[in-house]
């Protein structure tokens, strides 16, 4: 589904990703872990198509297409979703109206007809109960004045609405907020299926108590330096990231 080959990317002339290789197949859950500043958020941003970042080498194939060639909205249309670490606020725009536009834009991209008001409402109700979100939250201005947990729940709701093939969760800092972790994990588990894949980006092992990954990768200084099964996460929990520095120095 996703094939990243020797990806190099940076910002303002500074190289941050220095040759990433990663393959994700349908149904898999991958976790990327690593110390602060290793490039985790950069990877998420590059995959979603944030313009600030410059790709300097390598390739990314997503469902047979050259992902890097596509505009961010086309990537979403192809089924890529990014749950933001810090979702933005849009005053005066309700989540409902935002999602109505988003769902229909994505459908348009896929050559499907727009949902009418009744169909949209039905979809929304179904997803609301799936991720257990309150209607009041969805009628308020998008993310404005939301608590951390509410923002997280809203991201997960949007993910459920858009039914992505690959969901990327940028959870770099949320290790500190156990409530947010639970919400994110419940959402991911609710939409987990054989067809879809998930990439969870986190600093803390604790998130992985709730989302059990099939694969764990350790990102360090712009490279994946270690990959393994879920036990790798436990190992990291015990030893911390300091071992990396030792290993890297030896290597």
């Amino acid at each position: 589904m996703l094939q990243i080959k020797d990806l190099h990317a940076g910002i303002e002339g500074k190289e941050i990703l220095k040759g990433i290789n990663l393959t994700i197949r349908p149904g898999e859950v991958h976790a990327i872990m690593g110390p602060n500043g290793s490039g985790k958020s950069t990877l998420a941003s590059v995959l979603a198509g944030r313009e600030d970042y410059e790709v300097t080498g390598g390739s990314v194939e997503f469902l047979g297409k050259d992902l890097l060639e596509l505009a961010p909205e086309a990537r979403a249309g192809e089924g890529l979703f990014l749950a933001f670490q810090y979702p933005v606020e849009i005053p005066g725009l309700s989540t409902i109206n935002f999602m109505k536009t988003a769902v229909n834009e994505v459908r348009k991209y896929r050559g499907q007809e727009a949902l009418d008001a009744a169909e949209f409402l039905k979809l929304m109700k179904e997803k609301m109960s799936l991720v257990n979100i309150d209607k009041n939250l969805l009628t308020r201005s998008l993310n404005e004045g939301f608590s951390g947990g509410e923002k997280k729940r809203n991201e997960v709701f949007q993910m459920a609405m858009l039914e992505p093939k690959l969901a990327i969760l940028d959870e770099t800092d949320s290790g500190l907020d156990i409530d947010a972790i639970r919400i994110a994990a419940a959402g991911v588990n609710a939409i987990r299926s054989k067809e879809n894949a998930t990439l969870v980006i986190t600093h803390y092992q604790r998130l992985l108590d709730y989302i059990v990954p099939d694969f764990v990768h350790v990102l360090y200084n712009g490279r994946i330096v270690k990959s393994g099964g879920k036990e790798l996460a436990l190992e990291l929990e015990e030893t911390g990231y300091s071992f990396l520095k030792n290993e890297m120095n030896i290597a």
Partner: peptide, 29 residues
């Protein structure tokens, strides 16, 4: 903000439509 536009883009909404959404939100009252 570019952040607002990118957020909309990531949800499948092109920039033109994103601007319309943000502006209409701003003017809603």
């Amino acid at each position: 903000g570019e952040d607002q536009i990118f957020y909309c883009n990531q949800r499948g909404i092109d920039t033109e439509t994103a601007v319309a959404l943000i502006v209409n939100g701003f003017a809603k009252e």
